[in-house]
């Protein structure tokens, strides 16, 4: 009973406070003005810095990616990436090298409402990726839990499986910030789902260029990119901004 009274009390106080806020905002008569900003439309081209840096630091990795987007409308961009990668995967029982090129195409949607004349992006995107690659089985150790007769047996077949391809879909989120005039740096995360891939005979793809690591447990993959790009302005469009005076 006492509990109930207390909550009545609290609730009525909250309701009273809400009315106060509402009456305040009514006092604020909004006066507005409109300003027109020029917005650049064009082709933005760049490269992936993270892949470049990783190529120098990681002996097992070589890769490069160029990316580009073209602004279709206020919020929608046509976007794509083109890259090459060579990655050696080394585990206790397998050593394999994937080598090939990939192409991704799709759309980016900018959800960020820019202030004034700024043209930054917080965006989501979709892609379809296509990779053409080869898989080389450098060496393997036969998994044998019983070493009564000998140590585990290791073979170096150096067998190359050529002409493999893979298709996957991707969703990504990222940001692009204009740091200098027309120069952008960006960061994005990608979540990928394999649609179809050629499996080598009596082996599997452990890494697909563009898709990255393939997991035993499913068809999902992940990736990230750190890009630097330059916008080549082709034309300008007006953006009308309503400003409070």
């Amino acid at each position: 009973m006492k509990m109930q009274r207390t909550s009545y009390y609290i609730i009525s106080i909250i309701i009273m406070m809400l009315y106060n806020v509402a009456s305040f905002s009514q006092d604020n008569a909004v006066v507005t003005d409109t300003v027109v900003f020029k917005q650049s439309y064009g082709l933005r081209l760049g490269g992936d810095l993270s892949k470049l840096v990783r190529s120098f630091l990681d002996d097992d990795y070589k890769g490069f990616e160029i990316n580009g987007d073209y602004r279709l409308s206020k919020k929608v961009y046509l976007a794509g990436e083109l890259g090459i990668e060579e990655k050696t995967t080394d585990s206790d029982y397998l050593n394999t090298t994937a080598k090939g090129s990939y192409f991704k195409a799709g759309l980016d949607y900018n959800s960020y409402i820019n202030w004034l004349d700024m043209e930054n992006m917080i965006y989501g995107g979709i892609r379809v990726g296509l990779s053409s690659f080869s898989q080389t089985l450098n060496s393997f150790t036969v998994y044998n839990t019983d070493q009564y007769w000998q140590q585990q047996f290791t073979d170096n077949p150096n067998q190359e499986f050529k002409g493999l391809s893979a298709i996957w879909s991707e969703i990504l989120v990222g940001i692009k910030v204009e740091v200098l005039n027309n120069l952008y740096v960006g960061l994005n995360f990608q979540l990928k789902a394999m649609i179809t891939q050629d499996e080598p005979t009596n082996f599997a793809n452990l890494y697909v260029p563009g898709f990255n690591k393939i997991y035993d447990s499913g068809r999902l993959g992940a990736g990230y990119g750190y890009s630097i790009s330059y916008l080549i302005p082709i034309y300008k469009k007006n953006k009308i901004e309503v400003l409070p005076k």
């Binding site: 397998l94 036969v142 599997a204």
Partner: peptide, 13 residues
């Protein structure tokens, strides 16, 4: 005969 198992297990005989 060596048969591929998985990324973690590699091959078995």
């Amino acid at each position: 005969q060596f048969i591929y198992v998985s990324r973690a297990c590699g091959y078995k005989s």
